[in-house]
């Protein structure tokens, strides 16, 4: 993709996303880590806009920033006496080494492969996504709705207190 604006946008978004992801890793306070995670989500949404997936960018903000981040914040609030520190386990060093080696393998593969690319924009509109979801991909779509229902019911059942369970028990 050519253009000064595109290049500036890409580098700014890449810096923002990666620095925020690093912030999730190194910040000492759990809530600061969540805020850095939100910045990462917004950076990824910016990437989606750059890659002509505007609808998915907005869906990413609505779902990740508007719902999942809020869910994480609620879980942090509902666990008040757990530590608010963002410290590491004793596997921190092997994990870091593993991640660095994995990144090295990925980067080598990415830059070594001869990618066969199209340069013009397929310019996919939101209605094509809708048609694909209820046309070709309708079975995964329905299974995803069943999955969401199962997750909803499961999450509610997991956090019931014994008093609430006793109310609804089949006596």
């Amino acid at each position: 993709m050519e253009g000064v604006g595109v290049t500036i946008a890409f580098w700014v978004l890449a810096a923002l996303t990666l620095i925020a992801a690093g912030g999730v890793m190194v910040s000492r306070n759990l809530l600061h880590a969540v805020l850095f995670l939100i910045v990462t989500f917004i950076g990824i949404a910016g990437f989606f806009v750059l890659l002509s997936a505007a609808f998915l960018a907005m869906a990413q903000i609505i779902i990740y920033v508007g719902a999942i981040a809020v869910l994480i914040l609620f879980a942090i609030l509902l666990t008040p006496r757990a530590g608010r520190g963002n410290s590491e386990t004793k596997f921190a060093l092997p994990a870091t080494l593993l991640a660095i080696s994995l990144a090295a393998v990925f980067l080598f593969v990415i830059h070594d492969t001869d990618w066969e690319v199209v340069q013009e924009d397929p310019s996919l509109a939101a209605n094509q996504l809708g048609e694909a979801l209820v046309g070709t991909w309708v079975v995964p779509f329905e299974i995803a709705s069943v999955l969401l229902t199962a997750a909803l019911v499961g999450a509610i059942m997991l956090v019931r207190t014994p008093e609430e369970e006793a109310e609804d028990a089949l006596a």
């Binding site: 993709m1 050519e2 595109v6 290049t7 890409f10 890449a14 996303t17 990666l18 992801a21 690093g22 999730v24 890793m25 759990l30 990462t40 990437f47 890659l51 994480i72 879980a75 942090i76 666990t79 757990a82 530590g83 520190g85 963002n86 410290s87 590491e88 386990t89 596997f91 921190a92 092997p94 994990a95 870091t96 593993l98 991640a99 660095i100 994995l102 990144a103 990925f106 980067l107 990415i110 830059h111 990618w115 690319v117």
Partner: peptide
């Protein structure tokens, strides 16, 4: 110009950072 390799690089680095965070944090969240 910005090519596919740039985006894939960002994705790979982000995945590596995510892996580092997932394996080394003490808090379940």
């Amino acid at each position: 110009s910005v090519d596919i390799e740039h985006f894939l690089t960002v994705g790979a680095l982000l995945f590596a950072v995510g892996l580092m965070v997932a394996l080394s944090k003490r808090n379940a969240i």
